[in-house]
Amino acid sequence: MNNNIEEIVKEAILQIKVADLKTVENIKIKYLGKNGTLTQILKSLSNFSAEDRKNIGSKANSAKSVIENEIESRKETLRKTLLEEKMQKEKLDYSSDFYFPFSKGSFHPIMQTIQDICSIFKSLGFSVAQGHEIETQWYNFEALNIPKSHPARDVQDTFYLEGTEELLRTHTSPGQIHVMESQKPPVRVIVPGRVYRNEASDATHFSTFHQIEGLAVDEDITFVDLKAALSDFIHEFFGYGIDIRFRPSHFQFTEPSAEVDVQCVFCNGKGCRVCKNSGWIELLGCGMVHPNVLKAVSYDSEKYTGYAFGLGVERITMFKYGIDDIRLFYENDLRFLKQF
């Protein structure tokens, strides 16, 4: 009988191995069903001696579970094969037409630059303030140490409004004055926004453009701090490998004043058409706040010092993306906008 059980198991396994999903069920019935071979053996156990009963019983039971396992694993294999085949049949061409109902949206490159710059300065501890585009002469000029006789006051560069003494701000610097009037030092703020100049438009000039003004005033702010903050900003924005140079310049509202150049991104400083062979590109203007500006907002110019800077957003964006005509920013041709 023992040999017989082993034979049965062997035979069953052989059959299971080649069975498909239908025949595997038949095999299950044949061996393990109500009248299945092994079921029969277990039913007939009463005919045997107690010892044999125990022996054969346990063998038959383990044979039953061997066959059950074998069947289950065969079924699992068959299910897997079936799914594999199904997937193979359903295979699609990855190079075909993927689809999303909406076209790709885009953010304006100017707005992206403003946001990028704001977030860098926020991480350096600056707040963001907003100014007015319509300004008074005092905020745009006098308070910034630009007296009436200064060439920058010539009507040619500034847009004036009919029926009012006001004008369109020519720079974001009036923002400095508003901020200082509204709070006491320490001040650390940037003022992004739109400014206007009466200039004929060409590839690098447009009557509407954007600037970001920065201002820090406290008891111990120095030129060294200015250099550190702006170096940090430039490296964060353009990457840590880029060379920077500070060079003396002149602005009415800062003294000492500087211009900051970065290594030309188009030729890596070797010299090209864009940088006029100098290897450098002028990036921003800055300096230590002129004492007259501090006096204009009734800050104690002996006690407090500060630095200020201003940068042209269009210019920086043009360098970043290699855009060669400023007017593209305001045409809003989707073939341009969708690239960003």
Binding site: G125, S127, V128, Q130, R188, A228, D232, R245, R247
Partner: peptide, 20 residues
Amino acid sequence: YDTIPLQKKQAVCLSTSSDS
């Protein structure tokens, strides 16, 4: 201007408003 040392003494400070 190249003789101005690149020294960071930036104090830890938070921006004072959440404006953007």
